[in-house]
Simulated scan of single mutants.
Amino acid sequence: MSNKSTRILIADEQHFNRLRIERWFNQLGYYRVAPVLNLEELLTLVEYGSEPFGLLIINASLGHGKLDLLDFCLNNCQLDRVMIYDGQRAQLPAIPASGQHKVQVSHALLPDLASIQRLMALVDPLRPSVGTVISVR
């Protein structure tokens, strides 16, 4: 059973990417998902949010040299956990998902369902383990 109150923020300029990631979260039982398409929307939601986001999933290219994305994510108390994907393009070092790190940096162009499941095992310990079979349609 997933924690239905986990707030998830998806930030990517590509509508298809946001939609695909949101659908994976929906398949896992998470519906408090807010997709944003640019840095300005992201900063507004994070800055003026009344409660922290349990997870931010963000394309590394969203910073476009305007923001040190890694520093922003590490030092923001409104973000409990962060996955930055396509990190190689932004020349960010790969940081694997672990209980020790608030931020995970992936060089994958887009996270897949398995990587989201592994991440959610850290974010939401109430959800089933990664080995649980989930039907994908």
Rank of each mutant, 00 (worst) to 15 (best):
V136N: 14
V36S: 02
R127Q: 10
P111D: 03
T6F: 07
V46L: 06
I84T: 05
P125K: 07
V105I: 10
R32A: 13
D12W: 01
Q27S: 14
P52A: 12
Q104P: 01
R127K: 11
L43A: 09
H15C: 02
L42R: 08
L45T: 00
L69N: 04
V123N: 04
V82H: 02
G131W: 02
P96I: 08
L56F: 03
E40H: 06
I134F: 15
T132K: 13
A108I: 03
N59I: 00
S135P: 01
A94M: 09
R137K: 15
V130A: 13
P96Y: 06
L28W: 07
L56I: 14
R118A: 11
L69M: 11
L67Q: 02
E13H: 12
N26E: 12
P93V: 09
N76I: 02
D71P: 00
S2K: 14
I84C: 05
I95Q: 06
L126R: 14
C77K: 15
L45C: 06
F25K: 07
S115Q: 13
P52Y: 05
S135L: 15
V36T: 02
T132N: 12
Q100S: 14
R32M: 13
H107E: 04
V105T: 05
R7A: 13
H107S: 08
W24P: 00
R7I: 00
E13M: 08
N76F: 04
I58E: 02
V130K: 05
E41K: 04
V82E: 03
R89S: 13
N76R: 04
M120T: 04
I58P: 00
L56Q: 04
T6N: 14
M83P: 00
V105C: 05
L69I: 09
Q104N: 03
R20Y: 10
F72D: 03
V133K: 14
L43Q: 15
F25L: 13
V103F: 08
D68L: 00
L62V: 10
N76T: 10
L109N: 14
E51Q: 10
L92N: 06
D124H: 01
L92R: 02
R118S: 12
S135A: 13
T132F: 12
M120F: 02
Y85A: 02
L42N: 01
I116A: 09
F25P: 06
S135N: 13
D68C: 06
V105R: 03
L56A: 12
I21R: 07
Y30L: 09
S50P: 00
Q27R: 14
L109M: 14
P96N: 10
L45R: 11
E22F: 01
H101V: 00
A94P: 00
V36D: 00
G99M: 13
H101K: 12
Q27H: 11
L19I: 07
E13V: 02
Q104T: 15
N75R: 13
R20A: 15
